[in-house]
C-alpha cells in the first residue's frame, strides 16, 4: 500500500504540489491525468523518493520513504521514465535490461548471477524483447524502445510500477500494445501500477481509477466514469469537449471540438 498524506512539495522555493492525499492499494491500476504543468511528473518524483516532501509524508506499507534505503526501494518499486536515457555510446538491449538487476547485486558484485539471468530472460519473454537482445538501443523503433525500458523496470521484480507517459511518441498501435502489456502485468502479477497519461481516452480505457490534477491539487479522484465528465474536463482543461461512450468497453470517450465548429450552425447546443 502506497500512501500520500497531505504532501506538499516542489522545486527551489516554488511549490508544485499542494496538500495531496490518496492511497493506492495492492493490485490497483491508477492513472494520473491533468493539463501541462499540473504536477503529474512531480507527483511521480515524490512517490519514488527523487523529491522529498516539504510537508506531509509518503509511506509504503506504513513506513516513510525517508526510512527506506534506495536499494530496498528499488527492489519494490520500479520507475519507467518518459524516454530512454541519452548515452554517448551504444548499449545492447540485453545489457541495458541487465542493469535492472542492480538492486539485487551485492555491493561491488561485478557479474550478474544465474538467478539474475533467469529473471532477465523471463522479463524479455514477457515484453517480447528476446529478439532484440543484441541490437543497440539507438537502433530501436519507438515501440521497441518503450518495451525495453519496461523490461529493465520489470527486471527489478517490483511490486509497484510507476510510468511517466509511457505512450507519448508512439502511434496508436504501439500505444495499445504498451498499455495492454502494463495491464497484463497488473492483472496477472498483481503489480500496482501508477501511470501518468496525457491521453484522456487511453486513461479512460486502461485505468481502474483516475486522479485528475489541476494546478498542483487533486481536482477529482474516482473511476473514469466519475472523473471524465464534460463539466469537469472543461473546467480543468479550459476547452469544450463532448464525452461519449466507447460502444465496446462502455468507458467514457472524450471528443474535442475545434473553435470553428463551436460557433458554426452544426455546433454544439448543450441546453
Amino acid at each position: 500500500m502506497l500512501q500520500l498524506e497531505k504532501v506538499t512539495t516542489g522545486y527551489d522555493r516554488k511549490a508544485i504540489l499542494n496538500d495531496i492525499s490518496f492511497t493506492v492499494g495492492k493490485g490497483d491500476l491508477l492513472g494520473v491525468i491533468g493539463p501541462n504543468g499540473s504536477g503529474k511528473t512531480t507527483l511521480l518524483k515524490v512517490m519514488s523518493k527523487i523529491l522529498p516532501p516539504w510537508k506531509g509524508r509518503v509511506t509504503l506499507e506504513g513506513r516513510g520513504l525517508d526510512e527506506i534505503k534506495y536499494r530496498e526501494l528499488a527492489r519494490r518499486m520500479a520507475v519507467v521514465p518518459q524516454r530512454m536515457p541519452e548515452l554517448f555510446f551504444s548499449y545492447s538491449v540485453r545489457d541495458f535490461i541487465l542493469l535492472g538487476r542492480t538492486p539485487y547485486l551485492r555491493r561491488f558484485q561485478l557479474l550478474e548471477g544465474e538467478e539474475d539471468l533467469r529473471v532477465v530472460r523471463e522479463v524479455m519473454e514477457e515484453t517480447d524483447t528476446l529478439g532484440l537482445e543484441e541490437r543497440n538501443l539507438e537502433d530501436l523503433s519507438g515501440g521497441e524502445r518503450q518495451r525495453t525500458i519496461i523490461a529493465q523496470a520489470l527486471a527489478q521484480e517490483p511490486e509497484i510500477l510507476l510510468l511517466d507517459e509511457p505512450t507519448s511518441h508512439l502511434d496508436i498501435g504501439h500505444q495499445v500494445e504498451i498499455l495492454d502489456l502494463v495491464r497484463k502485468l497488473n492483472r496477472e502479477k498483481k503489480v500496482m501500477v501508477i501511470m501518468v497519461l496525457h491521453d484522456l481516452n487511453l486513461a479512460s480505457e486502461y485505468c481502474d481509477r483516475l486522479i485528475l490534477l489541476k494546478e498542483g491539487s487533486i481536482f477529482k479522484m474516482g473511476t473514469p466514469v466519475e472523473v471524465l465528465t464534460y463539466e469537469i474536463i472543461e473546467k480543468v482543461y479550459n476547452t469544450l469537449v463532448i464525452v461519449h461512450k466507447n460502444p465496446i468497453s462502455s468507458k467514457p470517450h472524450v471528443l474535442l471540438v475545434p473553435e470553428e465548429e463551436r460557433n458554426s450552425d452544426r455546433g454544439l447546443r448543450r441546453d
Binding site: K49, I50, Y70, A74, L99, T102
Partner: peptide, 15 residues
C-alpha cells in the same frame, strides 16, 4: 548504472 543518468541510478537503488 551511473552512465544512464543520476535519476535512473537512484531508481536502480544506487547511493
Amino acid at each position: 548504472v551511473l552512465s544512464l543518468g543520476e535519476e535512473e541510478a537512484l531508481h536502480l537503488g544506487v547511493n
